[in-house]
Design a protein around this nucleic acid. Structure first.
Length: 437
RNA sequence: GGAGGGGUUCCCAAGUGGCCAAAGGGAGCAGACUGUAAAUCUGCCGGCAACGCCUUCGGAGGUUCGAAUCCUCCCCCCUCCA
């Protein structure tokens, strides 16, 4: 929050849509007029978020960052939580019908997600952000009333021609239910409602939202005779075609919730990005100005092994989400573990980072008796099964205190404690701190 | 309701009585190179008390010395017809 606010004056006079375009966010705009509009007046815009999970993930970052950019340029962002539409499920970009969620689950998810949004947008001050829940207006809408007031403005002929619907109709793998077919009307109504209540004139979203957004624009024009706009963002892929944050190695999905994805893991996720992606990702996931990004990228060309842009990316992204203090701790922690500093390390160094980097406690009594390496690796969460532990050891992927241990028969003993009660287990490129108590 | 096709290990996908823990590809893991990167190459890739044992091929039974493969019933998906 603090990060966003401090910087929020800087870009006030620039054209935020052009800026987003330069940074690589924008895929399509419904009308070029939006470029002028954001320069002429302070607008209100919105983006919808699906509360079907208890946390947003890295994939949701693009629209969040975009809303933050808009706010910093003096516009008012609205986060719409789809409490009502979340009960239906958006067929866009989905290949299967969604399972229904209970009202209770949605309510609790909504609360958690709201807290995450507050990291990106300020909810205080002049153009403070706003969180709304479409359950508040859709939840009490009568069916007959809805069909009469909203449904009559939609042509089924046009709807089935939409890409998102057409795909589900043609590829009959799963088909589409009447419920999901109706989804578009609900989202269109949201836009109309926000335009009427808050003078909201722009909806932004992922590229799969194009159909829903234009439906909202059409409905608003019909009901209010007002022209509103839409912008869709590129789907961000890494150079090898993977979606950002979608199911990472053994991390799984990279969540924004610090309980689900530890800040250290979040930081590491960004540090490990490929060289060729670094500059592009800096433009998308940090607020750094172009000159600085270019100079960071120039550093990379000189000393690629220093991973300067990746580390900066990780620091900035972590600072936005978890705060500068946490980001700094992640940096120190990573620097310590990966910087080859284990040699001169002290107990105090480990006291500081234990529990922050992946950490495990172990009973001292077990160590006195001696633990065989296979069990040790397994219990310190360095392997998913004993077989996996054996494999990793045999293949030379296991290190204790940075010294390779390839002997299955190896016994871990108190002599292995080099830093007070601590020991460092490394599997592959991952460090695990083990403390004996 | 009728006719046909199909459900295989994380995903896609071979396999139609033993040689099947199950081809191939992808993903993943480890190593080499190096840089917490990419590309490339190598090895691994169900579990365990590990030259053997146990569990797995939609579910439950059955035939057989022996089944993912054959039979019966059930569940689910798709296509066409009504």
């Amino acid at each position: 929050m603090t990060v966003v606010r401090e910087l929020s004056q800087e870009n006030a006079m620039s054209n935020v849509v052009k800026e987003l375009e330069r940074r690589g966010f924008i895929e399509q705009v419904t009308d070029p007029e939006i470029y002028d509009l954001v320069e002429k007046e302070r607008i209100t815009l919105y983006c919808g978020f699906d509360p079907s999970g208890e946390s947003l993930h890295v994939g949701n970052l693009i629209p969040m960052m975009a809303l933050a950019h808009f706010q910093r340029a003096g516009h008012r962002p609205i986060f719409l939580v789809g409490g009502a539409t979340g009960m239906i499920g958006d067929p866009s970009g989905k290949d299967a019908e969604r399972q229904m969620l209970t009202a209770d689950t949605l309510a609790s998810n909504t609360e958690k997600i709201r807290a995450q949004m507050e990291r990106f947008v300020s909810f205080e001050g002049e153009h403070s952000g706003l969180v709304v829940n479409n359950m508040d207006w859709l939840g009490t809408f009568g069916y007959i009333e809805f069909l009469r007031d909203v449904g009559k403005h939609f042509s089924v002929n046009a709807m089935i021609a939409r890409e998102s619907i057409k795909r589900r109709l043609e590829e009959r793998e799963t088909g589409i239910s009447y419920t999901e077919f109706s989804y578009m009307l609900l989202q269109a109504y949201d836009f109309y409602h926000l335009c009427r209540e808050y003078n909201c004139v722009l909806q932004i979203g992922g590229s799969d939202q194009w159909g829903n957004i234009t439906a909202g624009i059409d409905l608003t024009r019909r009901l209010l005779s007002k022209t509103v706009h839409g912008i869709t963002f590129n789907l961000i892929l890494t150079h090898d075609g993977k979606k950002i944050g979608k199911s990472e190695a053994h991390l799984g999905t990279v969540w924004l919730d610090g309980e689900k994805t530890a800040p250290y893991d979040y930081y590491q996720y960004w540090v490990r990005m490929a060289d060729v992606d670094a500059a592009r990702l800096l433009r998308l996931y940090t607020f750094l100005p172009e000159e600085e990004i270019l100079s960071l990228d120039a550093e990379r060309e000189k000393r690629p092994e220093a991973r300067i842009p990746q580390k900066r990316l990780a620091w900035e992204a972590t600072a936005i989400l978890h705060g500068k203090g946490i980001a700094e701790k992640c940096r120190k922690c990573a620097e310590f573990l990966y910087g080859g500093n284990l040699e001169g390390a002290t107990k105090e160094d480990f006291d500081d980072i234990f529990g922050f980097a992946p950490s495990v406690s172990f009973p001292m009594s077990a160590l006195r008796e001696g633990v065989n390496l296979v069990d040790f690796v397994l219990q310190a969460q360095g392997a998913s099964s004993k077989s996996d532990a054996r494999r990793k050891i045999t293949q030379g992927g296991v290190y204790i205190n940075n010294k390779r241990e390839a002997d299955i028969e190896r016994i871990v003993r108190t002599e292995d404690l080099l830093y007070g009660p601590y020991l460092v287990l490394r599997t592959g490129k991952d460090y695990h701190l083990v403390r004996f108590e």
